[in-house]
Design a protein around this nucleic acid. Structure first.
Lengths: 330, 330
DNA sequence: TTGAAAGCGCTAACAA
DNA sequence: TTGTTAGCGCTTTCAA
């Protein structure tokens, strides 16, 4: 067991523990020689400072909290987990660790508890809602935090995919290829990401001289049943292409279409605003937008730690994307 | 900000901070009256003990570590995340938090670091390998830990799905329905779960008077290409049913079959030893085994915390399952 | 450049 | 039943 402490080092080396502490942290003036000596000793004896003790002394935990929705459907799980991996990577390089905070829809008690306990130095919010209670709690608390996703709350540091550009680009490409009547299906519209994607969709319409009135909208489709109903209605109303806000929607639409014996893209085209690896094996492959959740998480954690260190950070960072055209919109 | 400390309470109430501490923890003798008084004060002033300070004093962190594979393919992500949710639930009830530890295949440096830093009181291992280096490091360190999955390392507390019973049951059911020639496809055989499922499969064969020689085995199929090759060969060799070790394999097999225009179950039957929600929309639905990853995580964390508290725990706990027969094996 | 001493906020022997 | 007194292992003034 690693039971050696800073006192042991000081005693063995015949110096004060202040000097040892300074040698380790690099703060304050220290002769190169003394510092070398301490560092060598540490290496040789495999000493690791106790982060709890350091935490107590500096009122820091060297942990960041990751608020992850505990109630999301299975399809979004990989997305969240990949952002989590990215966060861990970023945290690691700064010697931080990641602590989990489960959130359920409107129940923010887990987060509140964590804030009261002061077990984290900052928080990353994995998903944003309209009128987000988590954001309110975080603001009120004053702890540094960054959100992944958009928000119209002022003074919130955000990292997000550039959904607007991405969705508008994909939408206009579809239109320019001669498809005229589009249907848009999305889930819970209280989630900011669904609002943003809708906005991008409309922008894409407008870029091609159309407006929202020229398309069909099915929002708040949370269950498979609702999505299937929307699909049915879209087809009956003459939609030529169904644009799905995410892969969960796309999957349900695909199942429905195959059950009805519709052929893609002959009978109806389909595109998705989020491409998870889970859809990639579909026949035909689905036109979609490719993001990098891992990078998203990385950026969020990196930004957060910079904030914790008192650095100035960019208030809103948008990451890139790639529109991938495939057989489903040929 | 919650800046009130135990000293403030002691001063305000005219008692010693020991008494305050005791009132909070409930340890030692305390008059009901004093305790009430302290508790009331705490409630009124919204005091929360500083867990860092408590941690330093008791050499405890009230964190448990969750070793999660950072390199698993997307299909297993939901499984891992669901166990993670279960862990969080269990941890929460005991006032513990969950800290992430990413692991990559054979690189256990993250875990070693965490152990050296003593930022967790115990560890849950999310996946087990043959000759698992994580297990060795944990044993050597002496920290309490439980593994999810099987292991032949002695003296390791395990929580696992009962893969042997489940797989053997499903296998024998398929055989009893008149299917004769089975093929088994699985991924990396250094992962214990794949070994265990294979064992269950063989046991199922034996229950029906067959042996391993009567079936086709394709192990270490890690890539889609390998799985497709295995599928091809299985069919050419006369397999009537392809039994897939998990949903990732099943998905690739399904894609391959549909591309080749094979009809399920007419041309070939298919079953999976793990049913994720990701496959549930397949047409026809796939016969498979249903586990509850959330409960698995819950049980693991609960057991770990019991160990941390010095309680005696069951060395090996197997959880239930459900064999779900669907159209793919009709 | 170094050291002494006083915390950080809590727990736990030991006394009273 | 309660209080006194040392810590837990580190950081950080303030002096030397």
């Amino acid at each position: 067991m690693n039971k050696i402490t800073i006192d042991d080092i000081a005693r063995d080396l015949g110096i004060s523990k202040t000097t040892v502490s300074r040698s380790i942290s690099g703060k304050g003036r220290i002769s190169r020689k003394t510092r070398r000596m301490v560092l060598d000793y540490i290496k040789e004896h495999d000493y690791t400072p106790n982060p709890i003790a350091r935490g107590l002394a500096q009122s820091k935990t060297y942990n960041i909290g990751w608020v992850v929705p505990g109630d999301s459907e299975n399809f979004s799980l990989p997305y969240f987990q990949l952002t989590m991996f990215g966060m861990c990577e970023a945290a690691q390089t700064e010697n931080y660790d990641v602590l989990l905070i489960m959130s359920y829809d409107s129940d923010i008690s887990r987060l509140e508890n964590m804030l009261k306990n002061r077990k984290v130095d900052g928080v990353v919010l994995g998903r944003t809602w309209e009128n987000d209670l988590n954001i309110k709690a975080l603001k009120e608390n004053g702890i540094p935090f960054v959100v992944i996703g958009g928000t119209n709350e002022p003074d919130v540091v955000q990292v997000d995919n550039d959904h607007i550009s991405a969705c508008s680009e994909l939408t206009s490409i579809i239109l320019m290829k001669g498809t005229d009547k589009l249907a848009f299906i999305c889930g819970n519209s209280a989630q900011v990401v669904n609002q943003t994607r809708r906005e991008g969709f409309v922008k894409g319409l407008e870029k091609c001289g159309k407006s929202a009135k020229d398309a069909l909208f099915y929002v708040d489709c949370d269950s498979a049943a609702q999505i299937e109903r929307a699909t049915d209605e879209a087809i009956r109303t003459g939609a030529e292409c169904i644009v799905c806000a995410d892969d969960y929607i796309a999957n349900s639409v695909l199942v429905k279409l195959s059950r009805d014996g519709k052929e893609i893209p002959k009978d109806i085209k389909i595109a998705s605003f989020y491409n998870s690896a889970l859809l990639e094996h579909n026949r035909p492959p689905v036109t979609s937008i490719q993001y990098d959740p891992r990078q998203l998480g990385f950026e969020a954690a990196r930004t957060l730690i910079a904030m914790i260190n008192g650095e100035q950070v960019q208030p809103k960072k948008l990451l890139g994307y790639e529109v991938v055209l495939k057989g489903s919109t040929l």
